[in-house]
Amino acid sequence: MGSYVAKTGEFTRDTDYISTRITADGRDGYPVEAGRYRLIVARACPWANRAIIVRRLLGLEKVMSIGFCGPTHDERSWTFDLDPDGVDPVLKIPRLRDAYFKRFPGYPKGITVPAIVDIPSGEVVTNDFAQMTLDFSTEWTAYHRDGAPQLYPEPLRAQIDEVNERVYREINNGVYQCGFAGSQQAYDDAYERLFSALDWVSERLAAQRYLVGYTITEADIRLFTTLVRFDAVYHGHFKCNRCKLTEMPVLWAYARDLFQTPGFGDTVDFVQIKRHYYLVHSDINPTGIVPKGPDLAGWLTAHGREALGGKPFGNGTPPGPPPENERVPAGHSV
């Protein structure tokens, strides 16, 4: 996916994404416009899961369509194998790579999700997942639903950015640095950084319901998509095994609180998550066996986090149920 393991064994993610932005003023040539763009995701991918959640919380479903790739892919590209005949019904392409190549012939880097495609031209606009969700909050405000939450409120942006930076470096990406480490020392170092950071967010969340402020923000969404995959994948597959999420009381309660919030748990597909990691990473799991566990029933148990105060959506309201054609398949979640 455009990343590599150094000679000393450290996994390094290539973060040189397509930096084009879709903005209200259209300064990069792509103005915010209803119906023009298609968000391409895979439910398996934590980076894409963020975009799915933010789009849903802000109510952008009616102005930005969504296309789902299957949970597995080959070296060349994510594919639309969930769609009839394996072709995206809007873009009319079988591989996400086709949209990348349409704009950048022979694009040499990883074909990643989430990606936003310009429907009229069939060209990829951006795959910069970190900027993408911030732009949903700040550039697409004209199309936010009534009652949409403030996920990136101006007074808290510096604090959110600071939290996000460490969460990304040591947790979101940290699990990968454990899983893809090419030496014992690189793994040991990544493991220590990961669990030190998990202890740090746990301490922070012991006395407050959300990471920054009194409502759900972008920071919570970014941490959630790693936590929700922790026991199903990262604990065993990536050797992040000091303890399971269910053995970290504060983070387990926090993750359940978010999971039970509309827009979070209803975007999570555990079947696809496990199929992706255990089948695609054949270097880590050469047998291709997908584990049956863990038991997911605990995700719906009481979490008690309401006692800390805070309002999930501030003065806003929860999103309604997901559109019929965007629901996680029956049996794929809790």
Results as ranks from 00 to 15, higher is better:
Trp252Ala: 06
Asp161Lys: 09
Leu91Met: 15
Arg43Leu: 02
Lys102Asn: 11
Ile216Gln: 07
Arg229Gln: 10
Thr8Ile: 05
Tyr214Cys: 13
Phe195Gln: 03
Gly213Arg: 08
Arg55His: 04
Glu170His: 07
Val280Leu: 10
Lys239Ile: 06
Phe180Ile: 13
Asp88Glu: 10
Tyr168Ser: 10
Gly265Ser: 00
Asp25Trp: 10
Leu57Ser: 10
Glu139Val: 07
Gly59Glu: 03
Pro94Glu: 00
Leu57Ala: 12
Gly179Thr: 05
Arg193Glu: 05
Pro323Lys: 05
Ile216Asp: 04
Ser19Ala: 10
Val280Arg: 08
Pro312Gly: 06
Gln272Glu: 12
Lys102Tyr: 11
Gly304Pro: 13
Glu203Cys: 07
Arg209Trp: 05
Asp74Glu: 05
Ala219Gly: 09
Val163Cys: 02
Gly2Arg: 01
Thr261Ala: 04
Leu296His: 12
Ile22Phe: 12
Ala206Val: 10
Asp231Gly: 08
Ala232Met: 10
Ala48Glu: 01
Thr112Ile: 07
Asp74Gly: 11
Val201Ser: 01
Pro105Asn: 07
Val268Ile: 14
Ser282Cys: 03
Asn285Leu: 03
Ile289Pro: 01
Asp28His: 15
Glu218Asp: 15
Asp257Glu: 12
Pro71Ser: 10
Ala48Tyr: 01
Ala297His: 14
Asn241Gly: 08
Gly288Thr: 04
Tyr278Gln: 09
Val124Pro: 04
Lys311Asp: 07
Gly9Ala: 13
Glu218Ala: 08
Val117Met: 02
Pro286Gln: 11
Gln131Glu: 11
Thr287Lys: 04
Ala6Arg: 08
Val5Arg: 05
Gly236Thr: 14
Asn173Ile: 02
Leu57Thr: 06
Asp295Val: 12
Asp14Thr: 07
Ala24Gly: 11
Ile221Arg: 00
Tyr37Gly: 01
Ala24Met: 14
Arg55Gly: 00
Glu139Asp: 04
Gln272Met: 12
Ala253Lys: 09
Thr23His: 06
Arg55Pro: 00
Gly182Gln: 02
Arg157Lys: 14
Trp252Cys: 06
Lys92Asp: 07
Glu203Lys: 10
His144Thr: 12
Thr225Tyr: 01
Ala51Ser: 13
